[in-house]
Design a protein around this nucleic acid. Structure first.
Ligand SMILES: [Mn+2]
Ligand SMILES: [Mn+2]
Ligand SMILES: [Zn+2]
Ligand SMILES: [Zn+2]
Lengths: 142, 142
DNA sequence: AACTACATTATAATAATTCTAAACTATTGA
DNA sequence: TCAATAGTTTAGAATTATTATAATGTAGTT
């Protein structure tokens, strides 16, 4: 595991102590090629599968929220019945497959910048994000 | 109350029986000039204030979801910790004030149509909605 | 090693939502 | 008109997601 040192530093930089549990969560969350989306339940399963250790649910919540506060994770709201998190913390757009409940990042180049002609007076814009809901195209089965 | 007949018809058209509770909810939700956003808690307060009757929380949930299913209400997901509903059921964009938690409809003309250059293959787009998060512009207090 | 601050844990508490099943009501049609 | 029926409301219980508690454990520091 050559990556572990990175995670220790990553945690230290955020003022978080590099505990065993947090390092395990870093492995699961950040030791991968691509960013991804997950729910707390997904994550609990992934941790208990990948690592052969029990982790308290409270620790998962605490750590996810600590990571979120430090900007290592981003919470995404698509379906108000489910809390999604994203290891891609940039402002970006999403496709959401309403049939499979799958959340997919929009490629930066696949959507033109959104042109807001009039903002609310006295307010500054913090983020602009587009959500594209899709479903399978069954027009052929008519 | 000349509107009540409309609500009876509105409910009948959706195959919903025009019960006292549902008519009261229609009054609160639809007997107004502009559409608006609310949470279940907001709605329960509004009903118990406007009408001088108790209504079961279960009925509020049931009725909101019945209205949602029939297309009279739309659920909006901004903050995964709170479920918002909208009496504006069209596909439309929102400003969300992160300080006040206020949800504001975007005027149709104040934002250019979103140009999606590449969609997911085999999928059709059901909706495209933009969420603009804003906060007060305090650059003057530097 | 010992001290301290912070983290983890099991469990309890809370909050939001849904379920249950009994009582009630709108609709239908005899 | 009125009883039969299907659908609705209700209080309260159950479920689920999340957060709080407080005792125990651990990382960082001296
Ligand atoms: Mn959160
Ligand atoms: Mn819903
Ligand atoms: Zn994403
Ligand atoms: Zn709206």
């Amino acid at each position: 595991m050559p990556k572990k040192c990175n995670f220790i530093e990553k945690l230290r930089e955020a003022g978080l102590r590099p505990t065993k549990q947090r390092l395990n969560m870093c492995e699961v969350l950040f030791n991968r090629e691509k960013t991804f989306h997950f729910t707390i339940n997904d994550l609990v399963k992934m941790i208990s599968e990948k690592m052969n250790q029990k982790i308290s649910l409270a620790t998962v919540y605490n750590t996810v929220h600590a990571f979120e506060k430090k900007g290592y994770l981003k919470e995404i709201s698509i379906d108000s019945h489910k809390s999604y998190f994203d290891t891609n913390t940039s402002v970006h757009h999403h496709f959401f497959d309403e049939e499979t409940n799958e959340l997919i990042d929009c490629d930066e180049n696949d959507i033109d910048p959104v042109n807001i002609k009039k903002n609310i007076t006295g307010k500054k814009i913090n983020s602009v994000e587009v959500l594209i809901k899709v479903a399978s195209d069954n027009q052929n089965q008519k």
